[in-house]
Write a protein that binds this DNA or RNA. Structure first.
Lengths: 341, 341
DNA sequence: CGCTGGCACTCGTCGCTAAGGAGTGCCAGT
DNA sequence: ACTGGCACTCCTTAGCGACGAGTGCCAGCG
């Protein structure tokens, strides 16, 4: 199939113009704005081919052309280079992330920054529990039969959970439990805890067995297995910018609804890797409600490990090179922040 | 000024019809749907008076009438009784809040529930730090010169903060500090801590003075003074329902933006009390971006104390009696959950 | 063979006009 | 004090025509 260089160039021009003007782009406007060196008629022929191949389409007969999802895909894969960040953006990132006081703060700043820079909806997953290691476990008596179990991970995340004990527990007993738990689990990755924790119950003193067993099952259930991941969201208002076009069709609601479902958002980060950005364009999204949007996501973490995902959700007509660059940059800085922490 | 009973009845009818149909209501439709016992002409005269007094207005000459902010205010103050919740709603509330595992979970469930029941945007403030008491303070060594300070309050909230120590600290020293801190502060309301904490530094052992001082200043700064309140939000997608009317005017964006600003949201709860709901209608809102909406808010907490605010944001044309009832009910249940906790 | 200019055609947009209808204000009558 | 009637306003909708952007196709040119 014939997609010579000029046709690709035409496609690139169409994508770029459409992204910046948000209006179907015609052959005449194209040759005026891009030095293609050929006449509108030639461009029209190329466009006809591009349309046959499914890369662009006409909203109505005799309107300009608009890229299809497939067209964006080709553009992203072959026609665009990652746009280097402007110094201003670089500075903004540094200024924004430096000065964060705790994990919550870092994540919040990151997500707001990302929303601001891309002018789209930003999503940042809190550092995943399963991929991080235990730094400390704390037991705090709340009443005689109730304990607050606090876990601190090496990513700075703190999880807590109230535990109902099978019977009253003495302070010394709790001190013992605390010591044992910490001795066994500190430094262990959460994914690796289950077997260790099992042996803990077996080795426990007879009289502490019941308590230890309860404690351990809570630990497994809620802190490890139920890796209830948290999500930070920002820039929802940018959706309103997506254009009165999509807005009037009422397509906004399902998107807002999808964004409120943490479960759905977490799916976005299923396959993220560190370093490179994953781009899902329109129909490529598995989440049906997001089929009218594109998602740019990546993983982040200290070094090259991945402890969480982050990304943006925006219209398919987005500035892919710019967005990809920004997402990756923010992810990198976020990773550095975590490494320092 | 003459607002006899029938005129008030007419106003109530207008508000109710407009809320349910979202369309300007005319004299004829009014007498048909409400057994007013008078003719349309009479109603028209009453309407003219109501309009003179500023309770209703005509969008255009020869369209029906629409309540003004002032009209809604009169309606809320004098014409409406709180609508009892349906058993189904009552059940929904119980089902939803029971089974929450920790504070985060309770708050999240509450806000989603509220959004779902009112079909509006729901906002719940996390239990405020300043009004709750210290249950436990924990110091966790992170490195030789770094400490994680964890504070647990009686509302179940956990706050943490990394502290840079002036110099390396021995484990025994930390144990001492922990004991002293807890002995002095457990059970004390956060608002009452500053003087106590001050004396802590003075009474500290000479060699621990520097460390204690750092610790105490962090405690004051970040955990008490900076009462950085958190907010949970849900139901943003319901904004899209506010009607293509407001939506096409592009009035949606500023509202979404305001909702993303925690500082703004916190203002909504400045004056809330427990038990009764506060209703701010349209222009009555201090937040400019929310002048096109109404806010129904209330305080919640164990018993009659107030540890936080919650409420909903919706179009001025909302079902006030229903919304008020729901907000209060959810607040009451939430308070009970906290009391149990 | 590929590119170009010309030309007829399509079709969405914009502005105008006319008809329809909902709702009002006013007035005279009971 | 309420009611029925009536003229009037003005929003909404549909229909029509002019306009223009953009296309597809074709014949001609290098």
């Amino acid at each position: 199939m014939g997609l010579d260089d000029r046709k690709l160039e035409v496609l690139r021009a169409i994508v770029e113009d459409y992204v910046s003007t948000q209006e179907p782009v015609g052959s005449k406007a194209l040759v005026e704005r891009h030095a293609l060196g050929v006449s509108p008629a030639t461009v029209r022929n190329d466009m006809a081919v591009l349309e046959d191949e499914g890369y662009i389409r006409q909203p109505h007969t005799s309107a300009g052309r608009v890229p299809t999802d497939r067209g964006y895909r080709l553009f992203v894969d072959r026609l665009s280079r990652v746009k280097p960040l402007s110094p201003a953006e670089r500075r903004a990132i540094e200024r924004f992330l430096v000065g964060a006081v705790d994990l919550d703060d870092v994540v919040h700043r990151a997500v707001r920054l990302l929303a601001q820079l891309t002018r789209q909806v930003a999503v940042v997953q809190y550092p995943s529990l399963t991929r991080s290691a235990v730094r400390h476990l704390e037991l705090v008596p709340v009443s005689t039969t109730r304990l607050l179990l606090v876990m601190i991970t090496d990513t700075g995340r703190v999880e807590q959970r109230v535990v109902e004990l099978p019977g009253p527990a003495e302070p010394e007993e709790i001190t013992d439990l605390r010591r044992t738990l910490n001795a066994t689990l500190v430094g262990v990755k959460l994914v690796d805890t289950p077997p260790l924790v099992q042996s803990l119950v077996e080795r426990a003193e007879p009289q502490a067995k019941a308590t230890m067993s309860t404690l351990v099952s809570v630990l497994l259930e809620t802190l490890v297995e139920r890796h209830e991941e948290r999500i930070a969201l920002a820039g929802t208002s940018n959706l309103a910018r997506m254009g009165p076009l999509d807005l009037s069709t009422g397509a906004l609601r399902p998107i807002l609804e999808a964004l409120e479902e943490e479960v759905i958002l977490l799916k976005l980060f299923d396959e993220v890797k560190s370093g490179s950005a994953l781009v899902r364009i329109g129909d490529e999204n598995e989440v049906a409600d997001l089929r009218s949007t594109s998602v740019v996501s990546t993983g982040y973490g200290p070094g090259t490990t991945v402890v969480g995902g982050m990304g943006v959700v925006g219209p398919t007509r987005m500035d892919y090179p710019g967005t990809i660059a920004t997402v990756r940059a923010v992810a990198r800085y976020l990773g550095e922040m975590l490494a320092q922490h």
